[in-house]
Design a binder for these strands. Structure first.
Lengths: 200, 200
DNA sequence: TGTACATCAGTGAACGCGCGTTCACTGATGTAC
DNA sequence: TGTACATCAGTGAACGCGCGTTCACTGATGTAC
C-alpha cells in the first residue's frame, strides 16, 4: 500500500483533487492546469481529463467537495439556541481559511458546471444548514427582523473570509487571533446592548 | 474627432483600459487577453503590450484606476458626523457594482505588480479615506470599540459586494433594491437600540 | 484450478490553437535652424 | 515658410511555448465456464 507505482492508481480521483486544490491555493484558479495536476498526482498528463471528462469537470468535482465540506463545517459546534449563529460564522470563516481553493472555486460559478446534479445536491445541503442556523437566532434579539440579521451574519463572515484571503486583513488584525477578531465583530451584531459579555 | 482611424490613436491608453474592464466584467480576469483587448480597442494586437509593457502592467494600471475611483466613491456623500460610515459603505458597495472588473482585480494582487509606485499611491489614498471614515463614527455608539466597529462595517460592505457579484445574493434579495437591503444590515450594526428609525 | 474474454484504468504520442512577446518597420508629429 | 532630422506611436509578421484534448494502445483486473 506504501508504493503507488501500480498501473492502476487506485485512488486517482482523490489524488487529482488534492493536487488541484494545492495548485489553486498557491496561485488562484488561473494557475490550475491539468498537466501539472497530473505531474503532482504522479500520473500521465491525460489521466485527469480521463477521469473528470475535462477541466470544468474537475472544477465541478472540486466545488462539490467544497460544498460538502462547508456543510460539515457549519454543523460543527452547532447546538440549539444561544450563539449558534455566531458559531456557524466561525465555522464558515474557518472553512474558508482551511480550504481556500475550494472556497474560491465555489464562488466562481463561471469556472464549473453549476447545474451538475451532484453539485446542486451538495450546494443545497450547505444552504439548508445556513438557513437553519439563521432561523435559530433569538427572534427578539434584534428588532425581530430575522432574515436581515441572518444576511448580516453571512455578509460579515463572507467579508472576513474573502478579505483575509486577499491579504487585506493583515494590517488590521495584526498579531491577534483572527477568530477572536471575527468574534468581536459578530458580537457587535448580536450581543446584548449592555456591558460586553465577551471580553476576555 | 468622430473618426478614430488615424495612425496615432490619441487615447489608446484609455481605450485599452475600457476594453480590458469590459472583458473582465464579462468573464473574469482569466478571460482577459491582450489580443482581444486590442481588437476591441481597434488597434493592432501588439499595441497594448507596447503601451503597458506587458499583461501585468495593464492589470496594474487597471487596479490603480480602480483605487482612484474607489477613493472618489468613498468621498461621495461624505458629510461630517452622523451616518457617514454608512454612506461610505453604500459608496463601497456601489463602486463594486458599477465597476466589478476593477473591484475584482484590486483584490487579486497576484495578478498585478502590487509594489508599483502609482498603484501604492492610489491604494494609500483609498485606505486613508476608509480610515478617516471609520474615525468619525460616534465613539459612544457601539461599546466605544471604534476599530472593531470600523472593521465590521468593512466586512459587511465587502461581503455584500462580493456575494452580489457571484450571484449568491439574488435569491435572498429578491426584487428589493439592493441598496436598501444593504442599508438594513448596516442599520443593524449602527442604529440606536430603540425602535428602528429607518423603516419606510 | 485453469483458460478465454470482456472491461476498465491509465498511457504516451500527436494535434492544433491561442496566447504573450519580439522586432524590424513605418507613418505621423514635433523641433531646430 | 520651408527643409531636415529626431522622436514617438503603433504595425504586422513571426516565434515559440504551454495548454486542453484526441486517440489508438496497453497493462491489470474481473467474470464466465
Amino acid at each position: 500500500m506504501t508504493d503507488k507505482r501500480t498501473y492502476h492508481h487506485g485512488d486517482l480521483r482523490r489524488a487529482v483533487l488534492v493536487a488541484a486544490a494545492q495548485m489553486i491555493d498557491e496561485g488562484g484558479p488561473s494557475q490550475l492546469n491539468l498537466r501539472e495536476v497530473a505531474r503532482r498526482a504522479g500520473v500521465s498528463h491525460a489521466a485527469p481529463a480521463y477521469h473528470f471528462g475535462d477541466k470544468p469537470g474537475l472544477l465541478t468535482a472540486l466545488a462539490t467537495q467544497g460544498y460538502e465540506m462547508l456543510a460539515d463545517a457549519l454543523a460543527t459546534g452547532t447546538r440549539s439556541g444561544e450563539g449558534e449563529l455566531e458559531e456557524m460564522g466561525v465555522g464558515y470563516v474557518g472553512f474558508a481559511a482551511e480550504h481556500p481553493a475550494h472556497f474560491e472555486v465555489m464562488f466562481r460559478p463561471d469556472l464549473y458546471r453549476a447545474d451538475d446534479p451532484d453539485l446542486v445536491a451538495a450546494r443545497t445541503r450547505a444552504r439548508e444548514r445556513l438557513h437553519a442556523g439563521v432561523g435559530t437566532v433569538p427572534a427578539r434579539r434584534r428588532g425581530d427582523d430575522t432574515p436581515t440579521a441572518g444576511l448580516a451574519a453571512w455578509l460579515l463572515a463572507h467579508g472576513f473570509a474573502t478579505l483575509r484571503r486577499s491579504g487585506s486583513l493583515a494590517p488590521v488584525v495584526g498579531d491577534q487571533d483572527p477568530e477572536d477578531v471575527f468574534r468581536a465583530t459578530a458580537a457587535l451584531l448580536f450581543a446584548e446592548p449592555g456591558p460586553s459579555r465577551r471580553h476576555r
